[in-house]
Simulated assay, not measured.
Amino acid sequence: MPIKIVTDSGANMTAGNLGSCQLEVAALSLIQGDKTWLDAYAGGSEIYVVTISSVLSGSYNSAMQAAKIYQEEYPDALIHVFDSKSAGPAQFLAAEKIAELKEKGMQFPDLVEAVSDYLENHVRIFFALKSMTNLANNGRVSPVVAKIAGLLKIWVYGWAEEGEIKPLGKARGEKKTLAALLRTLEEKGYRGGRVKIDHADNFDSAAELHDLIRKKRPEARVDLGTCRALCSFYAEAGGLMIGVEI
């Protein structure tokens, strides 16, 4: 039976292979996604689940409930659900780390401990947004902040702390925004680790940030990706989400 890594659709990933592991993606379109999660677990003897932050969605609770049901049916299965306390590219980095550790032969309990530490202490998610209307409408940020940003036509950048979105500053124009974002990454502990940049229909800004990071940290591995439906809704047109190892 395969080793499975399971994410929700907030991870901006598609089902397939990740290293020697089988990657499954559960949709977040259902309020109670038990059937979706169970379908994603099916056939797995060793299953690692990485959900979007429990502060932002009920995905974690649904995944936990489905894991309990699955283990009742398959008591020998090993399954652990990680609350990423994040989203998008940070979930991607966690899934990638799981696959990497399995390639090295790490066993279930040690891997759970290692990835828990990785998520808690070494992965952060940052953002740069042109609009925060959808975040404000869904209670994720202050409507006042979102309105000011929209009226002044400025970017807002920040990060997620314990799963909650925290704006850290604002800037006018792409160059100033990306420069400020790079400074913020380093202020928060970035020293050349892994980076995944997902964009919402804004490849040019994502590529420019990629080049800025690589110029400052030539050793860094920086990859680009696109936001899928859920992350695109919150990042809105032009937004960037950046998963970072610190």
Rank of each mutant, 00 (worst) to 15 (best):
S84G: 12
G43Y: 09
V50A: 06
N12P: 08
Y70R: 13
D83N: 09
Q22D: 01
T51D: 07
S54Y: 07
S45A: 14
G44N: 10
G33K: 07
C21P: 03
T7V: 12
A87Y: 09
N61I: 01
S84M: 10
P75Y: 05
V81D: 06
T7N: 02
N17M: 02
A66F: 02
A11I: 00
Y48T: 05
S20H: 10
K85A: 13
E24F: 01
Y74L: 09
Y48V: 01
V50M: 11
S62N: 14
L78S: 14
I31V: 15
I79W: 07
V55N: 14
D8V: 05
G10A: 15
D34G: 03
A87M: 11
S86E: 05
S9V: 01
V25Y: 01
A11T: 00
V49N: 06
D83Y: 03
Q65T: 15
G33P: 03
T51Q: 08
V49T: 06
V49A: 06
E46F: 03
D76G: 09
G88R: 04
S20P: 04
A67H: 02
A11C: 04
A42Y: 09
G16Q: 00
D83P: 12
P75M: 05
L30C: 13
G16E: 00
Y60T: 14
S62E: 14
T36I: 06
E24N: 08
A27D: 09
D8F: 01
N61F: 08
K35Q: 14
Y41R: 07
S62Q: 13
A11D: 02
D39F: 11
I69M: 08
T51A: 04
E46L: 05
S29M: 03
D34F: 10
G16C: 02
L18M: 11
Y41H: 10
K68D: 15
L18S: 02
K85C: 10
